[in-house]
Amino acid sequence: MTLSPRFSITLAVFSVLFLATIVHILVVMGIPLNVQHSAYDNIATYGPDREFNLLPDVRPQQEALPDLDPAMKHATCRFQLADGPVLFDASIPTSFWSIGLFNSAGEAVYSLNNRTAGAERLSMLVLTPAQLSILRENPPENLEDLIVIETADISGFALLRAHVPHPSRANALDQALLSATCGTIG
């Protein structure tokens, strides 16, 4: 059987387009699986896990992470829930601060700011559903005062942002971020 040239050309063009679509989809879907440095990996370079590490000030050519706001100071803490629940505690003397919880893929799991926290002090407990049911059997005294976040994501990081209203406040905010804790309960 022989096909007319026009039909063959059309078939060839369609098969190129069809294959190109598949390649396009594979490339786009494959990028997240093959990135060399995720935000989760980059944060590890600023200090140990389960501890808030102060990121250097956001300045030209010295951005610790891309797309950070130069008006803010940032601290990050990386954690693995397999090592136990994580308790975040911070008291930051500024008119605006916020904290975002991200999983290891960089997706936001939970976020709040100092108004939605309902208190001046940040006290937040992050744990897995299994850890929560264990904790419920023998609850710590201050469980009522904590913001409790259940997540199935085993590893992740938190990014704490604190607004610097004036450069003169920078040192006080550095101290507040350095004394913020991201550790074990109790």
Binding site: V28, M29, I31, A39, N42, N113, L159
Partner: peptide, 25 residues
């Protein structure tokens, strides 16, 4: 930067290691 993001923004954000502003922030 959320679980509902389209595949392109997932690729863009993970490739750039960008930590987005979360909705509560």
């Amino acid at each position: 930067g959320t679980a509902e993001a389209d595949p392109y923004s997932v690729a863009i954000y993970t490739r750039g290691a960008v930590v987005p502003l979360a909705s509560g922030e």
